[in-house]
Amino acid sequence: MSDSDEVTRSVASTAAEIASALNFIYKYVRHVLLFAEKTKNWYLILQLAIFMPQIIQIAQMYRKALDDFLYKVPVGDGAGPLVALRLAGFGAKWREVTEDTVVAESEFEGRRLLIIKAKGPGSTVGRPGEAAEKVIREAIAQGRRVSLMVTVDAALKLEGEDTGDVAEGVGAAIGDPGPEKIRFERVATEYNIPLRAVIVKMGMDEAILAMNQHIYKGVENAVERVKQIIRSESREGDTVVIIGVGNTVGVGQ
Protein backbone atom coordinates (compact mmCIF):
# COMPACT_ATOMS: atom_id res chain seq x y z
CA MET A 1 0.00 0.00 0.00
CA SER A 2 2.99 2.31 0.47
CA ASP A 3 3.13 3.26 -3.23
CA SER A 4 -0.64 3.69 -3.67
CA ASP A 5 -2.35 7.07 -3.76
CA GLU A 6 -4.20 8.79 -0.90
CA VAL A 7 -7.68 7.88 -2.24
CA THR A 8 -6.86 4.18 -2.53
CA ARG A 9 -5.39 4.16 0.97
CA SER A 10 -8.47 5.81 2.49
CA VAL A 11 -10.78 3.40 0.67
CA ALA A 12 -8.69 0.45 1.87
CA SER A 13 -8.96 1.76 5.42
CA THR A 14 -12.77 1.95 5.17
CA ALA A 15 -12.85 -1.54 3.61
CA ALA A 16 -10.88 -2.83 6.59
CA GLU A 17 -13.41 -1.20 8.95
CA ILE A 18 -16.30 -2.88 7.13
CA ALA A 19 -14.49 -6.24 7.19
CA SER A 20 -13.96 -5.76 10.91
CA ALA A 21 -17.69 -5.09 11.41
CA LEU A 22 -18.54 -8.27 9.47
CA ASN A 23 -16.06 -10.23 11.58
CA PHE A 24 -17.66 -8.88 14.75
CA ILE A 25 -21.11 -10.07 13.58
CA TYR A 26 -19.66 -13.54 12.92
CA LYS A 27 -17.97 -13.64 16.34
CA TYR A 28 -21.10 -12.43 18.15
CA VAL A 29 -23.36 -15.04 16.52
CA ARG A 30 -20.82 -17.77 17.24
CA HIS A 31 -20.49 -16.60 20.85
CA VAL A 32 -24.24 -16.69 21.50
CA LEU A 33 -24.60 -20.09 19.83
CA LEU A 34 -21.70 -21.74 21.66
CA PHE A 35 -22.65 -20.13 24.99
CA ALA A 36 -26.23 -21.39 24.63
CA GLU A 37 -24.96 -24.90 23.86
CA LYS A 38 -22.54 -24.83 26.77
CA THR A 39 -25.13 -23.70 29.28
CA LYS A 40 -27.91 -25.77 27.64
CA ASN A 41 -29.94 -22.59 27.39
CA TRP A 42 -32.24 -23.27 24.46
CA TYR A 43 -34.02 -19.96 24.93
CA LEU A 44 -30.85 -18.19 23.82
CA ILE A 45 -30.77 -20.28 20.65
CA LEU A 46 -34.43 -19.50 20.08
CA GLN A 47 -33.70 -15.80 20.55
CA LEU A 48 -30.79 -16.03 18.11
CA ALA A 49 -33.01 -17.84 15.58
CA ILE A 50 -35.62 -15.07 15.87
CA PHE A 51 -33.01 -12.32 15.32
CA MET A 52 -31.13 -14.17 12.54
CA PRO A 53 -33.04 -12.54 9.62
CA GLN A 54 -32.14 -9.07 10.95
CA ILE A 55 -28.54 -10.09 11.61
CA ILE A 56 -28.26 -11.53 8.08
CA GLN A 57 -29.79 -8.34 6.65
CA ILE A 58 -27.19 -6.18 8.43
CA ALA A 59 -24.35 -8.49 7.33
CA GLN A 60 -25.57 -8.39 3.71
CA MET A 61 -25.80 -4.61 3.87
CA TYR A 62 -22.18 -4.34 5.02
CA ARG A 63 -21.12 -6.78 2.30
CA LYS A 64 -22.78 -4.65 -0.38
CA ALA A 65 -21.32 -1.47 1.13
CA LEU A 66 -17.86 -2.98 0.85
CA ASP A 67 -18.32 -3.25 -2.95
CA ASP A 68 -19.58 0.32 -3.21
CA PHE A 69 -16.66 1.74 -1.25
CA LEU A 70 -14.17 -0.25 -3.32
CA TYR A 71 -15.95 1.02 -6.45
CA LYS A 72 -15.36 4.59 -5.10
CA VAL A 73 -18.87 5.86 -5.83
CA PRO A 74 -20.46 8.45 -3.52
CA VAL A 75 -22.51 6.85 -0.74
CA GLY A 76 -25.71 8.16 0.85
CA ASP A 77 -23.75 9.61 3.76
CA GLY A 78 -21.96 11.80 1.20
CA ALA A 79 -25.06 14.03 0.97
CA GLY A 80 -23.52 16.62 3.33
CA PRO A 81 -20.20 17.01 1.45
CA LEU A 82 -22.09 17.11 -1.87
CA VAL A 83 -24.31 19.95 -0.62
CA ALA A 84 -21.15 21.79 0.53
CA LEU A 85 -19.54 21.32 -2.89
CA ARG A 86 -22.67 22.54 -4.69
CA LEU A 87 -22.80 25.65 -2.50
CA ALA A 88 -19.12 26.43 -2.99
CA GLY A 89 -19.33 25.97 -6.75
CA PHE A 90 -16.99 23.83 -8.80
CA GLY A 91 -14.43 26.54 -9.42
CA ALA A 92 -13.89 27.32 -5.73
CA LYS A 93 -10.40 27.32 -4.23
CA TRP A 94 -10.14 24.86 -1.34
CA ARG A 95 -7.44 24.79 1.30
CA GLU A 96 -6.76 22.11 3.89
CA VAL A 97 -7.57 23.64 7.25
CA THR A 98 -7.06 20.56 9.40
CA GLU A 99 -6.38 16.87 8.78
CA ASP A 100 -8.53 15.60 5.86
CA THR A 101 -10.78 18.66 6.04
CA VAL A 102 -10.95 21.51 3.54
CA VAL A 103 -12.51 24.95 3.45
CA ALA A 104 -13.51 27.23 0.56
CA GLU A 105 -14.70 30.82 0.44
CA SER A 106 -17.61 31.80 -1.71
CA GLU A 107 -20.10 34.64 -2.13
CA PHE A 108 -23.86 34.34 -1.96
CA GLU A 109 -26.14 37.38 -2.31
CA GLY A 110 -23.69 39.67 -0.52
CA ARG A 111 -22.80 37.17 2.23
CA ARG A 112 -19.39 35.61 2.53
CA LEU A 113 -19.68 31.84 2.82
CA LEU A 114 -17.04 29.68 4.50
CA ILE A 115 -17.75 26.16 3.36
CA ILE A 116 -16.24 23.15 5.11
CA LYS A 117 -16.19 19.51 4.00
CA ALA A 118 -14.00 16.43 4.28
CA LYS A 119 -11.20 16.24 1.72
CA GLY A 120 -12.35 14.13 -1.21
CA PRO A 121 -12.64 12.04 -3.22
CA GLY A 122 -11.16 9.61 -0.71
CA SER A 123 -13.18 7.86 1.96
CA THR A 124 -13.02 10.10 5.02
CA VAL A 125 -15.31 12.16 7.23
CA GLY A 126 -12.52 14.56 8.17
CA ARG A 127 -12.67 16.68 11.32
CA PRO A 128 -15.54 19.10 10.67
CA GLY A 129 -15.84 20.29 14.28
CA GLU A 130 -12.18 21.13 14.62
CA ALA A 131 -12.17 22.81 11.19
CA ALA A 132 -15.28 24.90 11.99
CA GLU A 133 -13.76 26.05 15.26
CA LYS A 134 -10.51 27.06 13.53
CA VAL A 135 -12.22 28.82 10.61
CA ILE A 136 -14.59 30.78 12.87
CA ARG A 137 -11.75 31.92 15.15
CA GLU A 138 -9.77 33.04 12.07
CA ALA A 139 -12.76 34.94 10.66
CA ILE A 140 -13.45 36.69 13.97
CA ALA A 141 -9.76 37.58 14.33
CA GLN A 142 -10.03 39.27 10.91
CA GLY A 143 -12.92 41.35 12.23
CA ARG A 144 -15.68 39.59 10.34
CA ARG A 145 -19.16 39.11 11.76
CA VAL A 146 -20.03 35.40 11.72
CA SER A 147 -23.82 35.45 12.00
CA LEU A 148 -24.81 31.88 11.19
CA MET A 149 -23.57 28.29 11.17
CA VAL A 150 -25.39 25.67 9.11
CA THR A 151 -24.55 21.96 9.35
CA VAL A 152 -25.79 19.59 6.65
CA ASP A 153 -25.78 15.84 7.17
CA ALA A 154 -27.50 12.60 6.27
CA ALA A 155 -29.89 11.35 8.94
CA LEU A 156 -31.63 8.07 9.52
CA LYS A 157 -35.29 8.01 8.59
CA LEU A 158 -38.00 6.02 10.26
CA GLU A 159 -39.99 3.42 8.35
CA GLY A 160 -42.76 5.17 6.44
CA GLU A 161 -40.74 8.32 5.77
CA ASP A 162 -39.45 8.99 2.26
CA THR A 163 -35.79 8.74 1.31
CA GLY A 164 -34.36 12.12 0.29
CA ASP A 165 -36.78 14.20 2.35
CA VAL A 166 -35.13 17.33 3.70
CA ALA A 167 -35.77 18.61 7.21
CA GLU A 168 -34.32 21.49 9.16
CA GLY A 169 -33.91 22.26 12.81
CA VAL A 170 -31.80 23.90 15.48
CA GLY A 171 -28.46 22.48 16.65
CA ALA A 172 -25.64 20.56 15.05
CA ALA A 173 -26.52 17.90 12.49
CA ILE A 174 -23.81 15.32 13.04
CA GLY A 175 -24.03 11.65 13.89
CA ASP A 176 -20.91 11.73 16.02
CA PRO A 177 -21.91 12.39 19.62
CA GLY A 178 -18.28 12.96 20.66
CA PRO A 179 -15.57 15.54 20.06
CA GLU A 180 -16.75 16.94 16.73
CA LYS A 181 -20.31 17.76 17.84
CA ILE A 182 -19.16 19.44 21.06
CA ARG A 183 -16.76 21.61 19.06
CA PHE A 184 -19.63 23.01 16.95
CA GLU A 185 -21.67 23.69 20.06
CA ARG A 186 -18.76 25.18 22.01
CA VAL A 187 -17.76 27.67 19.30
CA ALA A 188 -21.40 28.57 18.59
CA THR A 189 -22.00 29.30 22.28
CA GLU A 190 -18.72 31.18 22.69
CA TYR A 191 -19.43 33.63 19.88
CA ASN A 192 -23.24 33.51 20.17
CA ILE A 193 -23.67 32.17 16.63
CA PRO A 194 -27.05 30.59 15.77
CA LEU A 195 -26.60 26.94 14.80
CA ARG A 196 -28.94 25.49 12.20
CA ALA A 197 -29.17 21.91 10.94
CA VAL A 198 -30.36 20.59 7.59
CA ILE A 199 -30.71 16.84 7.13
CA VAL A 200 -31.35 14.56 4.18
CA LYS A 201 -33.29 11.51 5.34
CA MET A 202 -32.31 7.97 4.37
CA GLY A 203 -32.34 4.41 5.65
CA MET A 204 -29.38 2.88 7.46
CA ASP A 205 -28.55 0.75 4.41
CA GLU A 206 -28.88 3.71 2.03
CA ALA A 207 -26.40 5.73 4.10
CA ILE A 208 -23.56 3.30 3.43
CA LEU A 209 -24.56 2.09 -0.04
CA ALA A 210 -24.11 3.96 -3.35
CA MET A 211 -26.09 7.20 -3.36
CA ASN A 212 -29.42 6.63 -5.09
CA GLN A 213 -31.47 9.05 -7.18
CA HIS A 214 -33.82 9.95 -4.29
CA ILE A 215 -30.89 11.06 -2.12
CA TYR A 216 -29.38 12.88 -5.11
CA LYS A 217 -32.66 14.77 -5.53
CA GLY A 218 -32.64 15.38 -1.76
CA VAL A 219 -29.18 16.96 -2.08
CA GLU A 220 -30.52 19.43 -4.66
CA ASN A 221 -33.43 20.29 -2.34
CA ALA A 222 -31.06 20.65 0.64
CA VAL A 223 -28.94 23.16 -1.32
CA GLU A 224 -32.05 25.28 -1.89
CA ARG A 225 -33.07 24.93 1.78
CA VAL A 226 -29.65 26.12 2.95
CA LYS A 227 -29.90 29.13 0.61
CA GLN A 228 -33.32 29.98 2.10
CA ILE A 229 -31.89 29.77 5.64
CA ILE A 230 -28.98 32.05 4.67
CA ARG A 231 -31.36 34.61 3.13
CA SER A 232 -33.68 34.66 6.12
CA GLU A 233 -31.18 34.47 8.97
CA SER A 234 -28.25 36.58 7.84
CA ARG A 235 -27.72 40.01 6.38
CA GLU A 236 -25.58 41.26 3.52
CA GLY A 237 -21.95 41.62 4.59
CA ASP A 238 -22.22 38.81 7.15
CA THR A 239 -20.08 35.70 7.17
CA VAL A 240 -21.91 32.37 7.17
CA VAL A 241 -20.24 29.03 7.91
CA ILE A 242 -21.64 25.98 6.15
CA ILE A 243 -20.44 22.50 7.13
CA GLY A 244 -21.16 19.45 4.97
CA VAL A 245 -20.84 16.51 7.36
CA GLY A 246 -20.38 12.94 6.14
CA ASN A 247 -18.16 10.55 4.22
CA THR A 248 -16.85 12.21 1.08
CA VAL A 249 -15.95 9.10 -0.94
CA GLY A 250 -16.48 9.91 -4.63
CA VAL A 251 -17.06 13.61 -3.87
CA GLY A 252 -14.01 15.72 -4.67
CA GLN A 253 -13.68 19.46 -4.61
Binding site: V73, P74, L82, A210, M211, N212, Q213, I215
Partner: peptide, 10 residues
Protein backbone atom coordinates in the same frame (compact mmCIF):
# COMPACT_ATOMS: atom_id res chain seq x y z
CA UNK B 1 -16.82 19.49 -18.83
CA UNK B 2 -17.35 18.56 -15.21
CA UNK B 3 -18.84 15.65 -13.27
CA UNK B 4 -21.52 17.22 -11.05
CA UNK B 5 -23.13 14.07 -9.66
CA UNK B 6 -22.96 10.30 -9.45
CA UNK B 7 -25.85 8.15 -8.32
CA UNK B 8 -27.18 4.61 -8.50
CA UNK B 9 -30.50 3.92 -10.14
CA UNK B 10 -32.53 2.06 -7.57
Amino acid sequence: KRVIGIYAIK
